[in-house]
Amino acid sequence: MNVNQVTKALLLGSLASLPAAAAELEISVTNLTHGNYFTPILIAAHDMDSHLFQAGEMATPALQKMAEGGDIADLDAAVTGAGGVTAANPAMGLLAPSARVESIMLDSGDMTHLSITAMVLPTNDAFVGLDAWKIPTEAGRYTFTLNAYDAGTEANDEIINGGGMVGTPGIPAAPGGDGGMNATGIMDSSSNDKVHIHPGVLGDTDLSAGASDLDSRIHRWLNPVARVTVVVK
């Protein structure tokens, strides 16, 4: 139903020549993963030419900061500086695995597109992302899912060492207290430095040694990793 409704809305939207009216949005985000947290979420309404990220393009420094360490301040500033509006950190901290944050209100004003990002933790540089979804002009309830992307900025060594600063290898933390230690590290031979669909984490079952500090029984996921509902009022 929802895909159909979204498609219909997009078609209608592209045919309509009317300027977009201010839209009051009510948004919910569900973390679909089994054992991964979302760091503070950024929801941004912006114009048709703006993006927080684009698959197949290099990550901006602001996106890299978010994807490697969870810091959305630079992305937020970039959006608002360009005249956009944001709902920053609506979950007031981490959004736990399988948890939902709802009733997020955002007045999109004359902004036409919606984007969402948050880091997936524990990972090296995975983030959940929505890139420039055209806000329907037709009132209604729209539901869709989001994939996890790899920012392409840091090797996925799967070592938890507190490394959340840009350019620092490693994973900042396992918020669930379920990470391992002393991993030798996964050799990430990928040379893809563009934003791409995340291949998923490997993990292992050895919490005190092994190749990965992630737990394959807890930290793996399959895309999609989030479900979003947007009510256009």
């Binding site: 679909l32 993963t33 399988s98 079952t205 394959s216 029984r217 793996r220 996921w221 399959l222 990793v225």
Partner: peptide
């Protein structure tokens, strides 16, 4: 388990290290 319906993380299998 965590008692919430969520996206399945996939199965690991013995071939991929779950003894």
């Amino acid at each position: 388990d965590n008692d919430k319906v969520h996206g399945h993380p996939g199965v690991i299998s013995a071939d991929d290290g779950l003894a």
